[in-house]
Design a protein around this nucleic acid. Sequence first.
DNA 1: AAGGCGTAATCAGGTTTTCATCCATAGCCA
DNA 2: TGGCTATGGATGAAAACCTGATTACGCCTT
Lengths: 196, 196
Amino acid sequence: MAARRKSLSTGDIARHCQVTPATVVNWIKAGKLEVYTTPGGQYRMDTDAFLAFLDKNKFPVPEELQPARQRRILVMDDSPAMLDAATSALSRHLPGSVLETSVDGFEGLIKIGSFKPHALVLDLMMPRLDGAEVCRCLRAGTETRNMFIVALSGLAADNELVRRVKRIGVDAFLTKPVDMTDLARQLARLLRVALE
Amino acid sequence: MAARRKSLSTGDIARHCQVTPATVVNWIKAGKLEVYTTPGGQYRMDTDAFLAFLDKNKFPVPEELQPARQRRILVMDDSPAMLDAATSALSRHLPGSVLETSVDGFEGLIKIGSFKPHALVLDLMMPRLDGAEVCRCLRAGTETRNMFIVALSGLAADNELVRRVKRIGVDAFLTKPVDMTDLARQLARLLRVALE
DNA sequence: AAGGCGTAATCAGGTTTTCATCCATAGCCA
DNA sequence: TGGCTATGGATGAAAACCTGATTACGCCTT
């Protein structure tokens, strides 16, 4: 997914290379991988160094690590009007990105799996969908952990749901009514793409 | 995690081509196979590249690598015990199929999108997840419309939720406690695969 | 039929990877 | 801050793999 995380653990590397974590440790001990260690003694590797390593060994580069220029953005909101506004604003301000929308919460979750967006714009108050729970679930999944999340809500900042979401950790938080230019700016910042 | 396409070792390729591993190494050294190497010096090959190779040389494609043959099944239930039981029973009775499970409803929905199962075994009473609504959503989506759905529930047949689900239309309905052999039989029928 | 040639199979020895287990660490939540 | 759980690290034994040299086989030429 997106390049939020800069360092990889042995487990991450093992998954990418289709190999056991223990094997990755072997490589490290043999000096084949350039790593550094946490104070507790766990290995960490820079994404850049890992990419160089993959390249050297002709390993296929996993999709989520490729410097993809096309950023995928999924907007979930139960108001069609809001989706329309977001679509027109984002396609104007972020012309390089691919946009998807979902009015329905469940459909949106399924789309997260198939579309694999780099950034998710999520209304916290969708019918049948606990926004905080969605954030927690995304952060818990290996595939979705690094997805950028922009939360939207009309609730006050000290609301219980809002506090839960902020504790889980989203990348941006906008209060409704949403200023679309602001939304575009936040997405551009997170995805490191130019704003038009 | 989704069933990712595995990379193949020389042994795997040898088995598929009915040939000695050493022969596969010969092919590799002769540049006939497009491989990469682990830092330890072992050869790995992408499944896709291997299939292309088989095609080019008119090799018969081994059964278990034929994408069309693989049936993906996702089991969603909030009880880990139930998932364990289902996993062991289904992997025994339907050995050709790829199995995934999910204890969490939201995670399960995301997995539906990424894993794209041919059949979904769905507990109607998961926390935070209205089973009937999920069925409705699946039947409404173009991608998921033809997915087989096996609904599980401990509720009586005349329950409101159950009636809703049946009206939406699922492909099988089993009451809890679930007889795993029965579940396997239903799935085999729907997916048109042999039952073992 | 014999010889040459190329490809495949064998074999031994050393290396790499996996597997299973147990313990430590890191990240999460109250 | 202090616990909790998922994840990472170490270990040793077993399995799989690579190398290189040698042998066996099929096929074509002579």
